[in-house]
Protein backbone atom coordinates (compact mmCIF):
# COMPACT_ATOMS: atom_id res chain seq x y z
CA UNK A 1 0.00 0.00 0.00
CA UNK A 2 1.13 3.51 -0.81
CA UNK A 3 2.23 5.72 2.00
CA UNK A 4 -0.33 7.95 3.69
CA UNK A 5 -0.64 11.47 2.39
CA UNK A 6 0.95 14.25 4.43
CA UNK A 7 -0.71 17.53 5.33
CA UNK A 8 0.63 20.77 3.98
CA UNK A 9 -0.43 23.86 5.85
CA UNK A 10 -1.19 26.99 3.94
CA UNK A 11 0.71 29.23 6.36
CA UNK A 12 3.62 26.88 6.97
CA UNK A 13 6.46 28.82 8.55
CA UNK A 14 4.73 32.18 8.64
CA UNK A 15 4.70 34.22 11.84
CA UNK A 16 5.40 37.72 13.05
CA UNK A 17 6.42 39.10 16.41
CA UNK A 18 6.47 42.84 16.74
CA UNK A 19 5.93 45.56 19.26
CA UNK A 20 2.64 44.76 20.93
CA UNK A 21 1.52 42.30 18.29
CA UNK A 22 2.19 38.73 17.39
CA UNK A 23 0.80 36.61 14.58
CA UNK A 24 0.97 32.85 14.42
CA UNK A 25 -0.93 30.22 12.49
CA UNK A 26 -3.03 28.05 14.80
CA UNK A 27 -2.45 24.32 14.76
CA UNK A 28 -4.76 22.01 12.84
CA UNK A 29 -8.22 21.43 14.28
CA UNK A 30 -11.34 19.63 13.25
CA UNK A 31 -14.19 21.90 12.30
CA UNK A 32 -17.75 21.54 11.18
CA UNK A 33 -20.36 23.92 9.97
CA UNK A 34 -23.35 22.93 12.06
CA UNK A 35 -26.85 23.98 11.04
CA UNK A 36 -29.91 23.13 13.06
CA UNK A 37 -33.30 24.39 14.15
CA UNK A 38 -33.89 25.35 17.78
CA UNK A 39 -35.62 22.04 18.54
CA UNK A 40 -32.43 20.11 17.85
CA UNK A 41 -30.09 22.12 20.03
CA UNK A 42 -30.52 20.13 23.21
CA UNK A 43 -29.63 16.86 21.53
CA UNK A 44 -26.70 18.37 19.62
CA UNK A 45 -25.42 20.17 22.72
CA UNK A 46 -25.46 16.97 24.65
CA UNK A 47 -23.62 15.08 21.95
CA UNK A 48 -21.01 17.79 21.60
CA UNK A 49 -20.62 18.26 25.33
CA UNK A 50 -21.20 21.98 25.31
CA UNK A 51 -24.21 24.26 25.17
CA UNK A 52 -24.59 25.62 21.67
CA UNK A 53 -24.95 29.38 22.22
CA UNK A 54 -28.19 30.97 21.07
CA UNK A 55 -27.30 34.64 21.56
CA UNK A 56 -25.82 36.56 18.61
CA UNK A 57 -22.02 36.87 18.69
CA UNK A 58 -21.77 34.38 21.55
CA UNK A 59 -19.54 31.33 21.85
CA UNK A 60 -19.29 28.37 24.17
CA UNK A 61 -16.12 26.57 25.01
CA UNK A 62 -15.31 23.40 26.80
CA UNK A 63 -11.75 22.10 26.92
CA UNK A 64 -10.47 21.82 23.34
CA UNK A 65 -13.90 22.31 21.82
CA UNK A 66 -15.77 25.51 21.05
CA UNK A 67 -18.97 26.45 19.29
CA UNK A 68 -19.30 29.90 17.77
CA UNK A 69 -22.69 31.40 16.95
CA UNK A 70 -22.47 32.63 13.38
CA UNK A 71 -26.15 32.93 12.55
CA UNK A 72 -29.51 32.06 14.04
CA UNK A 73 -29.20 28.43 12.91
CA UNK A 74 -25.49 28.25 12.26
CA UNK A 75 -22.51 27.36 14.43
CA UNK A 76 -18.85 26.93 13.71
CA UNK A 77 -17.69 24.06 15.89
CA UNK A 78 -13.95 23.79 16.36
CA UNK A 79 -12.12 21.01 18.13
CA UNK A 80 -8.45 21.69 18.62
CA UNK A 81 -7.98 18.12 19.75
CA UNK A 82 -9.01 16.92 16.31
CA UNK A 83 -12.05 14.93 17.53
CA UNK A 84 -14.25 13.46 14.80
CA UNK A 85 -17.06 15.99 15.00
CA UNK A 86 -18.80 14.54 11.95
CA UNK A 87 -19.04 11.17 13.67
CA UNK A 88 -20.32 12.77 16.86
CA UNK A 89 -23.08 14.58 14.98
CA UNK A 90 -23.90 11.54 12.87
CA UNK A 91 -25.05 9.85 16.06
CA UNK A 92 -27.62 12.58 16.71
CA UNK A 93 -31.05 11.75 15.32
CA UNK A 94 -32.41 15.27 15.69
CA UNK A 95 -32.67 17.30 12.52
CA UNK A 96 -29.41 19.04 11.60
CA UNK A 97 -26.75 19.44 8.95
CA UNK A 98 -23.09 18.90 9.73
CA UNK A 99 -20.47 19.51 7.07
CA UNK A 100 -16.77 18.94 7.55
CA UNK A 101 -14.82 22.13 6.92
CA UNK A 102 -11.63 21.19 8.77
CA UNK A 103 -9.53 21.98 5.73
CA UNK A 104 -11.65 24.79 4.29
CA UNK A 105 -10.84 27.03 7.24
CA UNK A 106 -7.68 27.74 9.10
CA UNK A 107 -6.91 30.06 11.95
CA UNK A 108 -4.39 32.74 12.76
CA UNK A 109 -3.80 33.69 16.37
CA UNK A 110 -3.44 37.44 16.69
CA UNK A 111 -2.39 38.68 20.09
CA UNK A 112 -0.72 41.50 21.93
CA UNK A 113 -1.40 44.93 23.31
CA UNK A 114 -2.14 46.38 19.84
CA UNK A 115 -4.44 43.60 18.74
CA UNK A 116 -7.52 45.80 18.32
CA UNK A 117 -5.62 48.39 16.29
CA UNK A 118 -4.10 45.76 14.02
CA UNK A 119 -7.45 44.10 13.35
CA UNK A 120 -9.11 47.48 12.89
CA UNK A 121 -6.71 48.19 10.05
CA UNK A 122 -9.14 46.26 7.88
CA UNK A 123 -12.08 45.13 10.01
CA UNK A 124 -14.75 47.80 10.39
CA UNK A 125 -16.39 46.38 13.54
CA UNK A 126 -16.06 47.97 16.95
CA UNK A 127 -13.60 45.65 18.69
CA UNK A 128 -13.47 47.35 22.06
CA UNK A 129 -13.88 44.92 24.95
CA UNK A 130 -17.18 46.58 25.80
CA UNK A 131 -18.65 45.78 22.40
CA UNK A 132 -16.67 42.67 21.54
CA UNK A 133 -15.97 41.00 24.87
CA UNK A 134 -13.81 37.97 25.50
CA UNK A 135 -15.70 35.02 24.04
CA UNK A 136 -17.50 37.07 21.41
CA UNK A 137 -17.42 35.70 17.88
CA UNK A 138 -18.60 37.06 14.58
CA UNK A 139 -18.27 36.56 10.89
CA UNK A 140 -17.11 39.84 9.36
CA UNK A 141 -14.73 41.24 6.78
CA UNK A 142 -11.02 41.90 6.89
CA UNK A 143 -10.15 44.07 3.91
CA UNK A 144 -11.40 42.12 0.91
CA UNK A 145 -11.64 38.77 2.68
CA UNK A 146 -14.29 37.25 4.88
CA UNK A 147 -13.14 36.14 8.31
CA UNK A 148 -14.55 34.82 11.55
CA UNK A 149 -13.29 36.74 14.55
CA UNK A 150 -13.32 35.10 17.95
CA UNK A 151 -11.97 36.94 20.95
CA UNK A 152 -10.15 34.43 23.12
CA UNK A 153 -8.60 36.92 25.53
CA UNK A 154 -8.47 40.63 26.28
CA UNK A 155 -5.48 40.86 23.96
CA UNK A 156 -6.01 37.80 21.80
CA UNK A 157 -8.16 36.91 18.83
CA UNK A 158 -8.58 33.72 16.86
CA UNK A 159 -9.02 34.78 13.22
CA UNK A 160 -10.49 32.16 10.95
CA UNK A 161 -10.54 32.36 7.16
CA UNK A 162 -10.73 30.12 4.14
CA UNK A 163 -7.58 28.38 3.10
CA UNK A 164 -6.85 30.32 -0.08
CA UNK A 165 -7.50 33.67 1.63
CA UNK A 166 -4.95 32.94 4.35
CA UNK A 167 -2.03 34.44 2.44
CA UNK A 168 -3.94 37.69 1.96
CA UNK A 169 -5.29 37.83 5.51
CA UNK A 170 -1.93 37.03 7.02
CA UNK A 171 -0.20 39.51 4.69
CA UNK A 172 -2.58 42.28 5.64
CA UNK A 173 -2.28 41.50 9.36
CA UNK A 174 1.47 41.50 8.94
CA UNK A 175 1.42 44.87 7.14
CA UNK A 176 -0.78 46.38 9.82
CA UNK A 177 1.35 44.85 12.56
CA UNK A 178 4.53 46.36 11.16
CA UNK A 179 3.12 49.88 11.06
CA UNK A 180 4.98 52.09 13.46
CA UNK A 181 3.12 52.04 16.74
CA UNK A 182 0.35 54.49 17.33
Amino acid sequence: MAETARRTFALEGRSYDGDGISLAPAGPASRISLRAPAESLAALSEALGLDLPVRPKASARKNARAALWLGPDEWLVIDEGGADLMAICARVAALHSAVDISHRNLAILVSGRRVEDVLNAACPQDLSVARFPVGAASRTVFGKAEIVLWRIGEDAFHVECWRSFADYVFGLLDAAGREAVR
Binding site: R35, V99, D100, I101, H103, R104, W162, R163
Partner: peptide, 8 residues
Amino acid sequence: WLTSTSEQ
Protein backbone atom coordinates in the same frame (compact mmCIF):
# COMPACT_ATOMS: atom_id res chain seq x y z
CA TRP B 1 -28.90 23.66 4.60
CA LEU B 2 -26.15 24.81 2.29
CA THR B 3 -22.46 24.93 3.10
CA SER B 4 -19.63 26.00 0.86
CA THR B 5 -17.04 23.25 0.62
CA SER B 6 -15.12 24.77 -2.29
CA GLU B 7 -11.96 24.91 -0.22
CA GLN B 8 -12.53 21.84 1.88
